[in-house]
């Protein structure tokens, strides 16, 4: 068995990430959202719930709830900022690495937090598309 001797036990968060963690702008419940999506599992130690308010295919408001570590809260907060005001089409183009970059980088073992917030967003957008197509062209 070989060991990666360069691996450290210590976690080092960027100042940007810590600031988001301390003062998240977009955290909390939303009344009457257009869609709500949830990803993650408390058994695994992290979970998101994302609320989107969408008008004319534009995300006019977004909020989230988080059960998770500092990176989880910060990635959720920055993801919401990155898509607010964008159209659904634009939001769908968001990439995981943009989330990490907006936080000044993420420790490797915390990349799953960006993946989770990305997956929650994707789920919410898919849900929106589904309800739209179900509602028909007039909807």
């Amino acid at each position: 068995m070989t060991v990666d001797y360069t691996e450290r036990g210590m976690l080092k968060y960027s100042e940007k990430l810590l600031e988001r963690f301390r003062n998240p702008k977009n955290i909390g419940e939303m009344e009457n959202p257009t869609v709500v999506a949830e990803e993650g599992d408390p058994q695994c130690g992290d979970m998101f719930r994302m609320f989107l308010k969408i008008e004319n295919d534009r995300i006019v408001d977004a909020r989230f709830l988080s059960f998770g570590c500092a990176a989880n809260i910060a990635t959720g907060d920055v993801t919401v900022d990155l898509i607010k005001g964008k159209t659904v089409d634009e939001a769908e183009k968001l990439q995981i690495k943009e989330i990490a970059e907006a936080l000044g980088g993420l420790p490797a073992i915390k990349m799953h937090c960006a993946v989770l917030s990305y997956k929650t967003l994707k789920k919410a957008l898919a849900e929106y598309r589904k309800t739209r197509s179900g509602a028909g062209p007039q909807g």
Binding site: E7, L11, D41, Q43, C44, G45, C69, A71, I109, H112
Partner: peptide, 23 residues
């Protein structure tokens, strides 16, 4: 005892051994 503060993602082996649920 949170897994998230360490470099692995499982909950503490001690808490698991005494039957504390992961969540």
């Amino acid at each position: 005892g949170s897994a998230c503060s360490t470099t692995k993602l499982e909950p503490s082996h001690v808490l698991t051994a005494i039957g504390v649920k992961a969540a």
